[in-house]
Design a protein around this nucleic acid. Structure first.
Length: 484
RNA sequence: GUGGCUAUAGUUUAGUGGUAAAACACGGGUUUGUGGUACCUGGGUCGAGGGUUCGAUUCCCUCUAGUCACCCCA
């Protein structure tokens, strides 16, 4: 009331007052600056997450929870063991493994010096750190294959866009110690399974083989020679790409470039014999598993350590816009390159942020938390004290219970109870607290009864049981992640 | 890293060179200790800083953030 009156007064006397009040405000501010510098400093903190970083709020958590559960199941069923490695490693680890000259290392890595003078980096991907742990802890002596699973945030200093963040989450699967292509097939099968269980549609698996580093280099040479010879037929953009990233030209959508690339040398023709055999067998396994895939001979991947098999998981929306949900491949040379014993390995990562974006886009249902069925309302100090104990009594007996401690009137508490959709509300007021009783109100029928507090759990359970009987044939009371 | 577009309440969005509005959401209330609806009521430094102006939320510049394309990727 007084506030409104003030406002009216200001309006009445027009802008002179408004002006002076504004001046007064800024005057007050400068005074505050002089008098209470500490407070002002606090005010000036930028209350904003860093660029490309974001909070995953409670509203979004059900989506994440569903993903986590599906990942955990898949991980266990395929025999992966969980591993957690540090977010920060020596920068060298990544420059050596992911590779100099890759965008990830050269342009996108968060690198900094510690107080102790170490040059460290926030992990831009998982595999390097896991390979380091594998070597450091002598995991090579364990029975092979060794399967490791990890989830967590990774960091790339990229320009943010939708589905592209500087801090984003990956789930990572790696297998060490087996070179048989059946493992390649199993890894792809696992990726398929996760995507299917998540209920995602319009997903495409692309596979390719890039052979050994040597065969790949040979191919790039031949390709570059060809493209140079056709330079005059390429678009402006691609002419520039000749110097920076010739492989990219194969992806150009310009008509004239596509005419050129249609006759370009094929990477598969330049594979060494073992790689070709490996790839052939992989495709046989995939056919045997009846897993759909397309061969994309232009698929390269942005990390240096890959050999032989590479694959990516693509999703496309209605407008035909495509983006990658995950990818991986074989990296038979990595462990040795980092100083371990030569160990074949394969793995892949899923981009969780994009997967969740895709879940929302295709309206996949998130995980449903079990909802509380009982609400505890209390009035007055004495009741408040009692209700804390009643709460734990019920909770110990497996009753999911909500409360609104600290909230004022009974009316407002019942409003909350109603909104939560609980089946029972327990009311403890001054009178009940004195009598050691409680009111048990059935929210469905609206009826209520007073019971002794030591009979409370019993009384609540009785009502819940009756209601459950009424629900018979309806939807399950506890929806789970299971497919609907 | 380069270029384009955008920025108003918790959310979605109106609007104006004279300091702001709606819907939904949220809090409080409609006399005693009982839910819904209805009704009443509360909340904004108009992204930040500077400039032009008597006066800027509105026009201009810079920054920040988001978004799109390039690039790259998950």
């Amino acid at each position: 009331m007084p506030k409104t009156a003030k406002k009216k007064e200001v309006k009445k006397s027009g802008k002179t007052v408004g002006k002076s009040s504004k001046a007064a405000k800024s005057f007050k501010k400068t005074i505050e600056k002089k008098v209470a510098p500490a407070e002002v400093t606090q005010e000036e903190i930028l209350l904003q997450a860093l660029r490309g970083m974001r909070d995953i709020l409670p509203d979004e958590q059900p989506y994440w929870e569903r993903v986590r559960r599906i990942l955990t199941h898949a991980q266990q069923e395929y025999g992966y063991q969980r591993i957690d490695t540090p977010l920060v490693e020596f920068a060298h680890l990544f420059t050596r493994s992911v590779g100099h000259g890759t965008d990830i290392v050269d342009k996108e890595m968060y690198v900094f010096n510690t107080r102790g003078g170490d040059k460290v980096a926030l992990r831009p991907e998982f595999t390097a750190g896991i390979a380091r742990a594998y070597i450091q802890h002598g995991m090579g002596v364990l029975p092979k294959p060794i399967k490791l699973f990890s989830v967590g945030p990774v960091y790339r200093y990229d320009r943010p866009q939708e589905g592209r963040y500087r801090e984003f989450w990956q789930a990572n699967f790696d297998i060490f110690g087996e070179e048989d292509p059946i493992l390649d097939a199993q890894v792809i099968q696992l990726a398929h399974r996760v995507v299917r269980e998540l209920g995602l549609k319009n997903i495409e698996f692309q596979v390719n083989s890039i052979g050994t580093p040597e065969s790949r280099r040979d191919y790039e040479k031949v390709l570059l020679r060809y493209l140079e010879s056709q330079k005059h037929k390429l678009c402006q953009n691609c002419r520039e790409r000749l110097a920076t990233n010739p492989m990219r030209i194969l992806d150009c959508k310009e008509d004239k470039c596509m005419q050129v690339t249609a006759h370009a040398p094929q990477s598969l023709d330049y594979l060494d014999v073992p790689s070709r055999e490996h790839f052939k067998r992989l495709l046989e396994y995939l056919d045997e598993l009846e897993l759909p895939y397309t061969i994309n001979t232009r698929l390269v991947r942005g990390l240096d350590y890959y050999t032989k098999t590479v694959f990516e998981i693509w999703s496309s929306d209605k407008e035909g816009k495509k983006y990658s949900l995950g990818g991986g491949g074989r990296y038979d040379g990595l462990i040795q390159m980092l100083g371990g014993e030569a160990t074949p390995a394969i793995g892949f990562a899923l981009g969780l942020d994009r997967i969740i974006l895709e879940m929302k886009r295709t309206q996949v249902k998130p995980y449903q938390e079990p909802k509380p069925k009982v609400f505890l309302a209390q009035l007055g100090d004495m009741a408040k004290k009692k209700s804390l104990r009643l709460f734990s009594d019920l909770e110990k007996n497996g009753v999911l219970i909500a409360e609104s401690f600290g909230r004022g009137t009974l009316k407002s508490q019942l409003r909350v109870a109603n909104r939560l959709g609980v089946e029972v509300t327990i009311i403890v007021g001054q009178k009940e607290a004195l009598d050691e009783t409680a009111i048990v109100k059935d929210m469905v029928s609206g009826t209520q009864e007073t019971v002794m507090q030591d009979k409370l759990v019993e009384a609540v359970k009785k009502i819940l049981k009756v209601n459950q009987g009424l629900n018979h044939g309806g939807p399950l009371p506890h929806p789970t992640v299971e497919e609907d």
